[in-house]
Design a protein around this nucleic acid. Structure first.
Lengths: 166, 166
DNA sequence: CCAAATTCAATCGTGCGCAATTTAAATGCG
DNA sequence: CGCATTTAAATTGCGCACGATTGAATTTGG
């Protein structure tokens, strides 16, 4: 057995890092809610716009890879963003299977109004720069390892990346 | 301005701790899925059982406080757990408004089969004991601060705890 | 004691997440 | 070329999350 964690694993709720993650993630989402509500966005919709603001128009598949979300989540979400007039869904000529997601002018303009949000979130989190980086680094590694293990167990259903691993 | 984090707040996805949290939480839930599927449980249902195994029968309200989940989530979830024969919902005589959630024998027995799960999750996370505690500690503080701020902004809608704060 | 306020829980509506299935377009291969 | 395979996206179904509303039981205050 490796040197992972406490080595006495219990079924106590507060021992479980998973619950800390789950609780933290939901708390942050709830903080976003009142900040995004004036923009008419949900948190996942905001994440989609972050990617589009950063990288420009993208096919749905690449959006999904960036956010680790599948079509089952993205398709209806993008339809709602289109309904809000923030993105266009354009069937590409080179490959008629593929749909490119483009920002409309309104979607592009929304970026201005979102500029202040990261600072407000960061402020509420109340971590120092070192803590922020530390947590982010540990979570990045954790996510990668956990996703790899999940892919093994699930029999390679969501084979997003990573080799067969034995 | 306080000493929170990087001080150059951007709209870049990978700068955002919130996304690391969101991605990590979903990855962990996906790892639980194949482990819980043989027990016929979802991850939130498993969390409810953790609390009941630890603390015994509880009114719905206290379950919700422990997990930070509201009735809108818990009521249907508990109805499904009752349908699976793992818990009973007992209207209390002293206070007819309150419903006590009790484990059935089957729910109690399931504890045995769940004993191995925390170790499997901990192993996949691949953190040392120090890292584990560090992340957990930082997330606990973060969650508390973020929830407090969210409660302020939302105008005290979900006034779960904590004073008015100015 | 009784009306107003509070509390516990359920329900409803919306929007994720995700597995599984379906459809259509593109690619590969004999 | 022709047909099987692969790929992009949408759809379906289920189970959360959560705000808002509702209803019933209890508590509070006059």
């Amino acid at each position: 057995m490796t040197d992972t964690a406490t080595d006495d694993f219990t079924l106590l709720l507060d021992d479980q890092l998973c619950f800390s993650l789950y609780a933290a993630s939901r708390a942050v989402t709830q903080l976003y809610r009142p900040l995004l509500e004036p923009l008419g966005l949900t948190y996942p919709q905001y994440l989609v716009l972050l990617v589009l603001w950063e990288r420009g128009a993208l096919p749905v598949r690449e959006l999904g890879e960036a956010l680790r979300l599948d079509y089952g989540t993205l398709s209806p979400l993008l339809k709602r963003l289109e309904g809000s007039g923030l993105v266009r869904r354009v069937r590409r000529a080179e490959d008629e299977r593929s749909v490119r997601i483009e920002l409309t002018d309104a979607g592009d303009a929304l970026r201005e109004r979102a500029m202040g949000i990261p600072a407000r979130i960061g402020d509420a989190m109340g971590l120092t720069a070192e803590q922020h980086e530390q947590v982010q680094g540990l979570l990045a590694g954790l996510t990668e390892r956990v996703a790899a293990r999940a892919a093994e167990l699930a029999g390679r259903r969501g084979d997003r990346s990573g080799p067969t691993r034995q």
